[in-house]
Amino acid sequence: MKQVPDHEDEVLDLERHQDPGRNRITPVVQLPPEVALTVVTALAGLVRRAHRREHESPTPPRALKEAQSFEEGDVFMLAPPFEGYFADRYLMDFYDTRERGICSRMHLHTGLRFVRMMTGPDTTIRVSSLSPLTVRSRPDWTTPLHAFVDRLPDTPEGVHRERYNVVVPPNCWVDMQIPRGVSHQFNAVGPHAVIDSVHPEESIETLREGMSGYRMMAQTIFLAEHRSSAATCEDTGDGG
Rank of each mutant, 00 (worst) to 15 (best):
H7A: 14
V11I: 07
L12K: 14
D13Y: 05
L14S: 14
R22A: 09
I25Q: 08
T26I: 15
P27H: 08
V29F: 09
Q30R: 15
G45A: 02
R48C: 03
H55M: 10
P58T: 01
A63D: 09
A67W: 07
F70A: 08
V75Q: 03
V75D: 00
V75H: 03
P80T: 01
P81L: 00
F82T: 14
E83K: 06
G84K: 04
F86W: 11
A87T: 15
R89C: 15
F94A: 04
R98K: 08
R100L: 14
R100H: 14
S104D: 13
R105A: 07
R105C: 01
R105P: 01
M106C: 10
H109W: 04
T110N: 06
F114A: 13
M117Y: 13
T119D: 10
I125D: 05
R138L: 06
T142M: 04
T143L: 05
L145G: 05
H146Y: 09
P153C: 00
P156L: 07
V159L: 03
H160C: 05
R161G: 01
R161M: 02
R163W: 12
N171S: 07
D175C: 06
M176L: 12
V182S: 05
H184E: 03
V189N: 07
V194K: 04
I195P: 01
D196T: 09
V198D: 06
E201N: 13
E202P: 06
I204H: 04
E205C: 02
L207W: 04
R208Q: 14
Y214F: 15
F222L: 06
L223W: 06
L223Y: 02
L223K: 08
A224C: 04
S229H: 14
D235A: 11
G239I: 06
